[in-house]
Design a binder for these strands. Sequence first.
DNA 1: CACAACCTATATCGGAGCGATACATATTGA
DNA 2: TCAATATGTATCGCTCCGATATAGGTTGTG
Lengths: 181, 181
Amino acid sequence: MDTKLLCLGVLSEGERSGYEIKKLFETRFRHFFVAGFGSIYPALAALAGEGYVTARAVPQAGRPDKRVYSVTEAGLDHFRERLLATAPRHKVRSEFCLLMYFAHLLPPERALAHLDTMVARWEEMLAGDLGLSAADEAALTPGQLFDLGFGRAVVGAARAYCLERRAPLAAALLDRPRAAE
Amino acid sequence: MDTKLLCLGVLSEGERSGYEIKKLFETRFRHFFVAGFGSIYPALAALAGEGYVTARAVPQAGRPDKRVYSVTEAGLDHFRERLLATAPRHKVRSEFCLLMYFAHLLPPERALAHLDTMVARWEEMLAGDLGLSAADEAALTPGQLFDLGFGRAVVGAARAYCLERRAPLAAALLDRPRAAE
DNA sequence: CACAACCTATATCGGAGCGATACATATTGA
DNA sequence: TCAATATGTATCGCTCCGATATAGGTTGTG
């Protein structure tokens, strides 16, 4: 389970609760890793069962207790081992591309709306978590900096391509005879 | 199951066997949808059970029979309905980015090797299925053309970024003191 | 002030999904 | 000769994750 691996990774930077880990996933890893509570809580429970992390209950005023996890020595070792054994993969699952592929079976305005939705989402990402200032970047490790730039490059390219091809696509979708180049 | 949806989609272009569908997935959809036999065969069986496709056994010389599937009228309707009800998503799951994020815990040469592996894979994709000639492109629907360009843009951006940042990353990973910009 | 909307916080379950594997044979290439 | 590689179908079990439940606090707005 890769979720276990990433949880171990973020815990190696400091103790955190499941909820905080989810937040972190959303801000720092959104462009390459998505995981919900349904993945994170079981992952943490499994890690605790294997002795790679320990949990500590922190009472909260008027809120349910927070379970704060810390990585153990064995967990750190395990993490490094697993990292060494992990093969680099990069998988995309895009219903957006699927919809575009069959755009001719969709009302044209629907296809274009999907396109606009994606552009908006990518712009949000670029302006949000991917849009750190230079000052913030100084605090990052080389790898974190690499990932940040990678996200910007890929998401930026997707956004740029969609914007650039919107008009030609609209033309091609709306009137069949005229070619759009 | 999205696999069911895509199977229905490719069958709407003509009858095909499970094996042929897998081939098609690998060549046409690799950059946005990955599915193995373990997804495709159950998907086809389910579609047949629902009456959305019909199967026909084609005897082969010296080979197991081929089961060729065709989409039914009901299947075509269902496909269009499902397309209309599908939300545009675009999800990335990248162990490569994960490895890069924690590159400081890896031997530097290992991190760089991972990077080179990915560059090679992306170049393969660009030269292969994403590298159609202009003549071939004329036969595509606007949506197919859009997806092809999208794949080129995104995969190309990933490749370019990795090549561009390789040297700075290597420098930063090898000697900590010097900043790499 | 009432009510909606959203945030913090944890947890489970059922079903989808897919990697690994098995089987059977023919061709290609070293 | 032996190892790959290609065609072809199929299943099993583990992983995974979306949806949902629970519970109260805070913020915002008409």
